[in-house]
Design a protein around this nucleic acid. Structure first.
Lengths: 217, 217
DNA sequence: TTTTTGTTTAACAATTTTGTTAAAACGCAA
DNA sequence: TTGCGTTTTAACAAAATTGTTAAACAAAAA
């Protein structure tokens, strides 16, 4: 093995992740990726064969991780509202770290429609299915206005994700600093919950190990 | 003038608009644009000097048109709820035609942060300012839970726009056809209104000339 | 030490993409 | 028809980008 312990592969992935999903440089060149990682450009081809394969691997791993988190929350034994509160908390936090992940997926799938399936196929589950029963119960109890689970989930995802995507625009229009925008997004966790349920969000006593995120807000 | 009445410039813009904002081909080459318009590639440079300038013009004009529509609605004399209903109706319809517009802006501004201002600067208005007073009145009347106008608008925009952006993904996960997805989005107009207001959406008797849109749903 | 293995580098080749330009084609009016 | 300005085309040049390869290099194994 070389001097750098073959962590180079990991390093490249990590830095590419930052470039694509954090900075939103959707069409970063192999040179830019190499620069970000501080390595020779040829190494990208050495480890990943082509630019495209690096991206596929990257997206695959990242998506897998996020989907695992979401499924863990939605299949947990928590009461419905608490479950949704955790969902909001987790998804917003995750998005604070990788605001451009969705944007990347959207662009990538627009160009290569065949890849959508590639990314969705793995452990295919619809989040709307995972909450269907619990949601219907809430509806029957009259705790929430009747709504199809698909619409409920799309509402939730939209409210969580869009403000992350549109960061640069919203931030500029309102003349916010990065810190102010982060605060705005954390505030929104409450707002989202109230918008969905017309009610205060319950306190969360996070168990870092269960949801495996290490964010601070 | 040439045979084609110099509509060529318009033609190129129209087709580029389709390519970028409808099909989501975010990094379409000049050749692809030329092909879409059925003209020689050099004409793009003849009329717009560079690829970048074409995009700037395109985005500028499109955004201007959309902003005009929105402002017209938000500054109209309609009662608050009706105003918001029109907003939802218009924005969703517009997005059905150009689903990738936001995606484009997000990517473009990530790469060129200076351009955000360029696009926001023109007739700078915050939609949250335009509804502040009317919203506060509704809150005071107890018709809607207290909420900052900024959050109210971000909620609204998120609910309207995200499902358009994520079209390909949502559609695939739920195995919908294009027609089914369109129907789903039109349904959502009602859902969005109810999510925001906990109440049925009022009937709209659209005056095509006032809002200038020619969509059918 | 020498060999071997895996890693990194620089140089090169091939392709893609953008932008330029000179000439051809065209419409129109004198 | 000829002449003139505009539009369109094909050919070219330049730059950027991806992917390959052979050699240099470092560390472990023999």
């Amino acid at each position: 093995m070389g001097a750098e312990e073959a962590q180079t592969e990991r390093l490249i992935k990590e830095k590419a992740k930052i470039l694509f999903f954090q900075k939103g440089f959707l069409n970063a060149t192999t040179q830019e990726i190499a620069d970000e990682a501080g390595v020779n450009r040829a190494l990208i081809h050495y480890y990943f064969r082509s630019r495209e394969q690096l991206l596929d691997t990257l997206l695959d791993e990242t998506l897998q991780e996020k989907k695992d988190r979401v499924r863990n929350i939605l299949t947990s034994e928590l009461p419905f509202r608490e479950k949704i509160a955790y969902y909001i908390d987790t998804v917003v936090d995750y998005g604070l770290t990788y605001p451009y992940l969705d944007n990347f997926i959207i662009s990538e799938t627009a160009r290569h429609p065949d890849k959508v399936k590639m990314f969705c196929a793995k452990d295919r589950f619809k989040s709307s299915d995972l909450i269907r029963d619990a949601l219907n119960k809430e509806v029957k109890k009259g705790k929430i206005a009747a709504i199809a689970p698909e619409h409920f989930m799309v509402n939730l995802i939209s409210l969580c994700n869009y403000p992350l995507l549109a960061k640069s625009v919203i931030q500029t229009i309102h003349g916010m600093t990065d810190a102010a925008y982060r605060k705005f997004l954390v505030e929104r966790k409450q707002i989202i919950f109230r918008t969905i349920f017309n009610e205060e969000m319950p306190e969360l006593n996070r168990k870092e190990e269960s949801t495996k995120h290490a964010f601070k807000n």
